[in-house]
């Protein structure tokens, strides 16, 4: 025959198991384990028991307290979980997430940055120069004397004081060599200007990355290695790259570079992307003259230079049909490059 304390315990556990709300559960806790609860009452009663009975009842009391306490905790957790589940049962997880819209870098900035990162991996540092330039930096120092047929003043914006807006970033070659000594290896991203009618492929202001590498024994092979690597990094491993002899007054030999890639729209055509060549000894000589030294002795140093049209590269890479979209800054356009 069970001890009354065991009966009391079993009845408490039954009550707890049947409880469906938290308030009823709290009432049960008070009823059994509260200060004047029926299980707690046995603690008082212990004092009245005989010496033999006391340890037996004490053990039963301990077990009953533990069992009821555990059941209360377990049921409390069951009720809490059920309540929480009930509250979130109807939550529609398909609702749109909270908006955290970022803006976007202009596609030209993205294009420039991609190109800059590639050249930096190859060990090029950045250089810069002003947009407003002297005729000497823009033409004369670049082996383009006033009566040179390649000197196209028609296409150049001038200021009243004789300065001009640089027509190419090649001015930074001169700016760099005026102050630094070889070996040097720089790229110069920047704006250039052309007095040209604006249309889908021409704008008065455009962007270039100029490159210059001067060192001992720099050769056409190095020029090829550098620009082929750059163009394949940019357009993909399967890009075909073609160097075509060309003419620029400040490089000799000079080349234009064409690329062809299936990944590009119109990819079966050669697309011209770059002008480049070996720095003309006359450029080194003019720089030396300006510096009054022989820092760029053409017998000792050779170098290559290149100019990449970034607007054009961005048109090709992002498959944009019209250059004017860059200047319009339509948010619907910009958002596509987020």
């Amino acid at each position: 025959m069970p001890h009354p304390l065991e009966e009391l315990r079993d009845s408490a556990l039954r009550d707890i198991a049947e409880t469906q709300d938290e308030q009823a559960l709290e009432n049960l806790r008070v009823r059994y384990l509260g200060r004047s609860g029926s299980i707690s009452a046995w603690g008082e009663q212990m004092k009245t028991l005989g010496k033999e009975e006391r340890p037996v009842v004490g053990k039963l009391l301990h077990e009953a307290r533990n069992a009821v306490t555990a059941a209360l905790a377990q049921t409390s957790e069951r009720l809490r979980a059920a309540k929480e589940a009930g509250a979130l049962a109807g939550l529609d997880v398909s609702l749109p997430g909270t908006a955290y819209e970022a803006g976007a870098l202009h596609p030209l900035t993205q294009m420039l940055d991609r190109a800059i990162q590639i050249f930096r991996r190859m060990g090029f540092a950045l250089a810069e120069g002003p947009d407003l330039e002297t005729e000497w930096h823009c033409f004369d120092a670049l082996n383009t004397a006033p009566d040179h047929p390649a000197r196209n003043e028609q296409d150049t914006f001038y200021l009243a004081d004789g300065r001009l807006l640089r027509t190419h970033t090649s001015t930074v070659q001169i700016r760099t060599m005026e102050t630094a000594a070889p070996p040097l290896r720089v790229i110069a991203p920047g704006a250039a200007y052309r007095r040209d009618e604006v249309d889908a492929t021409h704008s008065a202001q455009f962007h270039q990355i100029e490159g210059l590498y001067v060192d001992e024994d720099v050769s056409v092979a190095d020029l090829k290695g550098t620009l082929e690597f750059f163009l394949r990094e940019l357009f993909g491993e399967d890009t075909a790259v073609r160097f075509r002899p060309h003419y620029f007054p400040f490089t000799e030999p000079s080349f234009e570079i064409d690329v062809k890639s299936k990944a590009l729209k119109g990819g079966e055509q050669w697309i011209e992307v770059c002008g480049c060549g070996m720095v003309h000894p006359a450029v080194f000589e003019e720089v030396n003259r300006a510096r009054s030294d022989l820092a760029f002795d053409p017998e000792k140093w050779t170098g290559f230079a290149f100019g990449l049209g970034m607007d054009r590269l961005a048109l090709i890479l992002f498959d944009i049909p019209d250059l004017r979209l860059f200047a319009q800054n339509d948010l619907r356009f910009l958002r596509q490059f987020a």
Binding site: A102, T109, R335
Partner: peptide, 13 residues
């Protein structure tokens, strides 16, 4: 850009 602002590039001319 991270603050939700869009970059524009307009002509220096």
């Amino acid at each position: 850009v991270a603050r939700g602002i869009f970059e524009a590039r307009t002509s220096a001319l």
